[in-house]
Amino acid sequence: RNRTTFNSSQLQALERVFERTHYPDAFVREDLARRVNLTEARVQVWFQNRRAKFRR
């Protein structure tokens, strides 16, 4: 699988949700994935990586 590149509008939407919660539930992830046209799995991994970055 190739690395996913996120465009600025996708990142903006992802970061907005991250500000609200670092652990979005499945419903939030599904909705977000639909809105930014990504798979739920990509959204889930983005949050895992974003939390790791946040802890650094």
Rank of each mutant, 00 (worst) to 15 (best):
F18I: 02
F54R: 03
A52T: 08
R16K: 14
K53E: 15
R1P: 09
R1I: 13
R42N: 11
R55C: 13
A41E: 14
V43M: 02
R29L: 13
R56P: 11
R16W: 12
E30M: 09
Q10E: 03
V36Q: 08
R55H: 12
A13N: 06
S8R: 09
S8K: 11
V17A: 09
K53M: 15
F47N: 02
E40V: 12
D25Y: 00
R20Y: 09
V36N: 12
N2M: 09
D25P: 07
A26R: 12
Y23V: 02
W46H: 05
F18M: 02
T21P: 04
A41S: 10
R20Q: 15
F18L: 01
T5K: 13
P24F: 00
L11E: 12
L11Q: 10
R34V: 04
Q10R: 04
Q12G: 07
R42Y: 08
N37I: 10
R42H: 10
E15V: 00
R42C: 15
Q12S: 11
Y23R: 01
L38S: 11
L32G: 00
W46N: 01
E19K: 08
A33Q: 06
T39L: 05
Q48E: 14
T39Q: 09
E30F: 05
F27C: 14
Q44C: 10
F47G: 03
W46P: 03
N2C: 02
R1K: 15
R3M: 14
Q48M: 12
T21M: 07
L11W: 05
V28H: 03
F47M: 02
P24L: 00
R16A: 14
R3I: 14
P24H: 01
R35C: 05
Q44T: 08
Q12A: 10
R56W: 05
V36A: 11
S8W: 07
Y23W: 11
E15M: 02
D25H: 02
V45K: 12
S8Y: 08
A26Y: 14
E15D: 04
N7L: 06
L11Y: 04
P24R: 03
F18Y: 07
N49F: 04
E40H: 05
W46L: 03
S9V: 12
E19V: 07
R51S: 02
R1A: 09
E30D: 12
Q48I: 07
F54M: 12
K53Y: 06
R29N: 00
K53V: 13
E30V: 04
D25S: 11
T21S: 05
V43I: 14
V36D: 05
N7A: 09
R51G: 01
V28P: 01
R56I: 11
E40Y: 09
V36W: 13
R56F: 15
N7D: 12
K53C: 13
L32N: 02
V36C: 14
R29Q: 05
E40W: 15
F54E: 15
T21D: 10
T39R: 03
T39D: 13
R29K: 01
E30W: 09
F27N: 14
R42T: 14
L11N: 10
F6Q: 07
R1M: 11
N37Y: 03
Q10N: 08
D31P: 00
L14C: 06
H22S: 04
R34P: 01
A26S: 13
V43H: 00
R1C: 11
T39S: 12
D25V: 04
S9T: 13
Y23Q: 07
V43N: 02
A41W: 08
A41V: 06
V17Q: 09
E40R: 05
R20H: 13
V28S: 09
F54Y: 15
R3W: 12
E15L: 07
A33E: 03
A13Y: 04
A26V: 11
R34S: 07
F47S: 02
R42G: 12
R42P: 02
V45G: 13
D31A: 10
R56V: 10
V45I: 10
D25W: 05
Q44M: 12
K53R: 11
R42A: 15
D25A: 07
T4K: 10
R51E: 00
R51H: 01
N49E: 15
Y23A: 00
R35H: 07
Q10T: 07
Q44A: 12
Y23L: 06
T4F: 08
E15K: 01
R1F: 08
R35E: 13
E40T: 08
R35F: 04
R55G: 13
N37G: 10
F54S: 09
F6G: 00
F18A: 05
T4N: 14
E19H: 15
R56G: 13
Q12K: 08
R20I: 12
E30K: 08
E30T: 12
D25G: 07
R51F: 03
V28E: 14
R34A: 09
R50G: 01
E15P: 01
V28C: 13
V28G: 03
E30A: 09
H22A: 15
W46T: 00
V17R: 00
R20L: 11
L32K: 00
R42M: 15
Y23E: 08
R16F: 08
F6M: 13
R3E: 12
V45P: 10
N49K: 13
Q48G: 00
E40D: 06
D31F: 01
T39K: 02
T39M: 02
R16Y: 10
V28T: 15
R56E: 15
Q12E: 14
Q10D: 06
F18R: 04
R35K: 11
F6N: 01
V17F: 02
R50V: 02
N37D: 09
N2F: 06
R55K: 06
F27M: 15
V43Y: 00
A52G: 03
L38P: 00
N37F: 04
T5E: 13
L32D: 06
V36T: 14
Q44D: 14
A41R: 09
R56S: 15
N49V: 08
V36P: 00
R35W: 02
L38F: 02
L11T: 10
V17M: 09
V17P: 02
